[in-house]
Simulated assay, not measured.
Amino acid sequence: MLFPTTCVALVLLAAVARAAVVTENGYPIMWEKAVAELKDMPTADGVVTINPWEYSQRMGMYRLLLSSTDQYMRSMGPSTNDSPLWGLPLQLGWKQKSGRLVDPTGASTCGQESADPMCISPKSWWACVNYYLSVIPFLAAVQTGVIGDGVTKITIQPAEGAEDYCTSYTDCSTKHADLMALWETFFQTMKTASESGATDSEKRDQILSTMWAAQQASLQQATTSCSERQQSYSGPEITFAQSWVNAADYVSAAYFLSNLEKSVQFMNPLPSRVLTATDSPPNIPDLTAEENHTLYIFSWMSSINRLLGGTLVRSWKSAMCSDLAREKGRALLDDLVLNPKFAVSGLLSILTEMATNC
């Protein structure tokens, strides 16, 4: 009679062991080891050259971004952990820990835990998408005077074997002018709002609206620029990746408060490894119930929106018409992702009712 109990215990232990890890000592993976000041980045002949294909340096870009913007984020809350930019380094940490920065072609050991864990592969779709959410905002922050002294020249080390990544402000603004402009608008708005006489609520809306507009633009550009890299992944991983991108439509429209605590809460149930061809969500034995639920919800929202010709996303965006409505939207996101008992079938009617009150 002990055999079934032992089996259950082993299954539960495996599920716990595979649970997504998104923090280390309460912060993004290897945050404390990341470069904290621009002067500590590699410099040659007076030019700072950052290697975004080395994990600690890409994470260092985020650490510089967070520390340089803290003074403008007081409307978000009293703590430095209240900044809505925390979601970005946490995403990078999850991707690294879950093996999504590894070379998916198998042609190199880049990113492999047992061989070269600090390497970020330019062939990784996930690393490519993150490039547009790390290098682009970093260069925009430098250009707007948020990072650096306005004199020191900063450039980005090219990726070996990949020529489609921009490597300087001039290069990136030439190739992605609209995208760079949106990130510059965010940083300028952040500075202006922090110094204005508006209420904290008004400042938050200004900052969050421009931040999410820039993040959405980065994702849209990345899905086009990085699309060929998806060919190296399994069908289930591609489906998850696409639904992960689509989920940003809901998060951004609700002005999701992506501070440290809230971001961790929403990232903990993300899949802790790359999905394989044999995985069938939401019934993957070695993933936790929470991870399987997240895969189901992401897939459901993406599928329903596609079947309805985009109606679900349009209804969601229409319903997010005021600060109060967006607060309700954020509560709905909590229910969708964190409450397995939430009746997803009633979501469209809830949104329709909310939209009529706009």
Rank of each mutant, 00 (worst) to 15 (best):
K203V: 06
P89D: 09
D279F: 10
G87K: 06
F186N: 12
Q71T: 12
L10A: 14
K97F: 09
R74A: 15
P42N: 06
L10C: 08
Y72H: 10
Q57K: 08
A254P: 08
G60D: 08
E32I: 02
A141M: 02
T80K: 13
S349Q: 15
P236E: 05
Q112D: 09
Q112M: 14
M320D: 03
M118T: 07
V129G: 00
V16D: 07
S194W: 05
E113Y: 11
A127G: 15
L38Q: 12
L101E: 10
L312A: 02
R273F: 11
L66Q: 04
K123A: 12
S218W: 00
M118W: 14
Q188E: 15
S201M: 09
C128W: 02
K153L: 13
R273A: 09
Q220H: 12
L179D: 01
L65K: 11
T23M: 08
T109N: 10
P84K: 12
C119T: 05
C7T: 10
P285I: 02
G148Y: 02
S83W: 03
E202V: 04
V274C: 10
L336H: 04
N357R: 13
R229N: 08
S196Y: 12
C110R: 01
D45C: 05
E261G: 00
R306N: 05
W125P: 03
A241K: 01
K123P: 01
R273L: 10
T6N: 02
S83N: 05
L88P: 01
M61R: 01
S258C: 08
L208C: 02
T189H: 11
R74L: 10
A177R: 12
N292L: 01
E184C: 08
Q188W: 00
V142H: 07
F266S: 07
P4M: 14
A217Y: 00
D334Q: 13
E32H: 14
V142T: 04
Q215P: 00
L257I: 09
H176S: 12
Q206S: 15
P4A: 14
V22C: 11
I350R: 11
P84Q: 09
M211I: 01
S232D: 11
A44W: 10
G87M: 08
G77L: 03
H176E: 11
C166L: 06
W31H: 12
Q216K: 10
T185V: 13
N81C: 02
L332V: 11
M61F: 07
K203W: 05
D249V: 04
E290W: 09
A140K: 05
